[in-house]
Amino acid sequence: MNDTRKTAAIIGASRALGLGLATEYVHRGWDVIGTVRGSHRTGLHDLADASGGRLTIESLEMTEPEQISALRDRLARHTLDLLFVNAAITRGDVPISDVPTDMFTEVMITNALSPMRVVESLRSLVTPTGTIGVMSSSQGSIALNTRGGQDLYRASKSALNQLMRCYAARHAEDTRTLLLMDPGWVRTELGGPDADLSVEESIPGVVETIESHQGKRGLHFLDYEGQVVPW
């Protein structure tokens, strides 16, 4: 085994942006641990088959805390250079006054609470010079919200950003780099067919931004072009 090879754990890697991240890191020669929900075959399995052993797959339903704990136990002997949590759902462009309580709860748990549970659980596996990243969105920026719409999704990403700020403050002595990444408006199931970017156009920029900030401790909210996103 090449001791200089780096290891990334991509949480939520079965499709779209997560699969794109796993693909990019495998192509860059990293060892990658990617998680999928359930046992069904995904594009990540095809990537694993072609990876020459550099990609391993773990099962994780991120909204189940006991599954996060079980994943932590399974990965206990690993040292991660990058932990990246990619997970988000949307339930349509519904005014907040019309959002049912169960929908609000589902989106907030998936988009804000669960990613932070993963970060808290797996943080000790990340090397002190490593990076912890979470996929955010410019729609989580309060300063940039001049048009409204997507109320619940925006609120969930703003909550995620705030929780990462709380995390960073609570671990102010931490030497790891903390990133909130905005991938741009990407043509995925979530972004829709009219979005500006393909996954192949967004993800290399995301990875370059992650790489360029390695060793820059503290929390940074950045887009796929390396630009600071206003809070």
Rank of each mutant, 00 (worst) to 15 (best):
W30T: 04
G192R: 08
L55G: 01
P128N: 03
E225H: 14
R41E: 15
S141M: 11
M103A: 13
Q214H: 08
P204T: 02
M1Y: 02
K6H: 04
E66Y: 00
P115M: 06
I89Y: 03
A143S: 14
T4Y: 02
R5E: 09
I57T: 09
V134D: 03
T79R: 15
E225W: 07
E200W: 00
L75N: 03
L71G: 04
P65V: 06
N111Y: 07
R41Q: 14
R28L: 10
I96G: 07
R54T: 14
Q139K: 10
A143D: 15
D182S: 15
R154V: 09
L75Q: 02
N145R: 06
D151P: 11
L160H: 08
I109C: 07
Q150V: 07
H220G: 11
T129D: 15
G29P: 08
R37V: 11
T90V: 00
L178W: 04
G20H: 03
S138M: 14
H213I: 01
G92P: 04
I132K: 05
S59K: 12
V228T: 14
H213Y: 07
D93H: 06
I132D: 03
V99S: 04
E58V: 07
L55K: 01
M1W: 04
S69P: 00
W231E: 14
Y25A: 05
L125N: 07
I33C: 12
R72E: 11
A9E: 02
P193G: 07
R147D: 15
V36A: 14
E173D: 14
R15I: 01
D182V: 08
L71H: 04
T63A: 10
Y25T: 06
M108V: 12
A87W: 00
G20W: 03
N145S: 13
N86G: 09
T4L: 13
A159M: 12
T175G: 12
S138A: 15
S198N: 08
I203E: 01
M1C: 07
I11E: 05
L55I: 02
R72V: 03
R15G: 03
T101M: 13
L125H: 11
N111S: 10
L55D: 01
L17Q: 03
P193R: 08
Q139C: 07
G191P: 10
S69T: 11
G18C: 09
R91P: 03
L83C: 08
V36H: 13
I10Q: 06
A168L: 05
T177Y: 01
A9V: 14
D182E: 13
G29L: 04
D151T: 12
Y153M: 07
I68L: 07
G29W: 01
G29M: 02
S141T: 11
N86R: 01
G38Q: 05
L180H: 05
R123D: 15
D196L: 14
M116Q: 14
R28F: 00
P100A: 12
G149S: 10
R77W: 00
L17S: 03
Y25M: 12
F104Q: 00
P230E: 02
V229L: 05
T23G: 11
V36E: 06
R28Y: 00
D81S: 08
M108G: 05
V119K: 02
